[in-house]
Amino acid sequence: MDALIVTQAINVVYAVSTLAVLTLGLAVIFGLLGVLNIAHGEFVMIGAYCAYLTQSWNWPYLVALPLTLALCALLGAAVERIMIRPLYRRPFDTLVATWGLSLLLRKIAEAIFGPGFHSVTIPLPGTVQFLGIEYPIYRVVLIAVSFAVAAVLMIWYGRSRTGSRIRAMVSNPELAQAQGISVRRLAAATFIAGTCLAGLGGVMVAPLVPVQPFMGLDYVLRAFFVLVVGGLGSVPGLLSGAAAIGGVDSAISAASNATDGYFAVLVLAILFLWLKPRGLIARG
């Protein structure tokens, strides 16, 4: 009985931490730049396909990381230049444009890899024993890395020079410009960081999910709900949102079925839009 409870608890932690790491990229772009990048999920997809390619070429799994980062950075830079920069402060137009982008990336993936599933082998097979249970090593590593990425990002954002400049840009863009910060360049860098984080998330979850062209849709919606519930602009907000969405989803899915879990998540998000549109923890 105890072992079951511990396993379930760790499953929830696992669900919440992967959700958090998959939301980071969207949180950076939406929270800091105010751009709702609907193609976020497709950058996750790119990361997952990079992992798949790395394995199918028999390269070490970690090679997928630089591959993904390079691809997402290049693509992110191009997208920022072509469709985001001309549309800053026009959130509706960026929404439509990034929706088109998500469609394009999906269709490209479909054209290259076909519409079917691909699976990625878990790079760290086996289990580890702790607290009286056995748990897959890769999942434990995933939890640890997720928290590490979130923590590093939070500390970097709070302490580093670039971090304070980004905060300055978000807080008061005109004053940031007056002090010689090129908001254009910094915003582009922030956008690229967001797409790279999304790709990174894709590499991390690739071995645990079916890799296919439409996988991104689900991720962008869940990530969006996390931000709706948690609030924009802070790592604690993101974590609490991920905890709420991931927790509700895994609890209801376990008790009933996945459709009910998804339904509950959607209802929760709509309730927050109604009653608490700034989320649990807004930037303050």
């Binding site: 509706f92 929404l95 929706w99 849709l217 689900d218 709706v228 459709t259 998804y262 959607l266 709509i270």
Partner: peptide
């Protein structure tokens, strides 16, 4: 309006 778009997309998936 952006939130509306996302919710309608989610409803269709549901």
């Amino acid at each position: 309006t952006a939130y509306f778009s996302m919710i309608t997309l989610a409803l269709s998936l549901l």
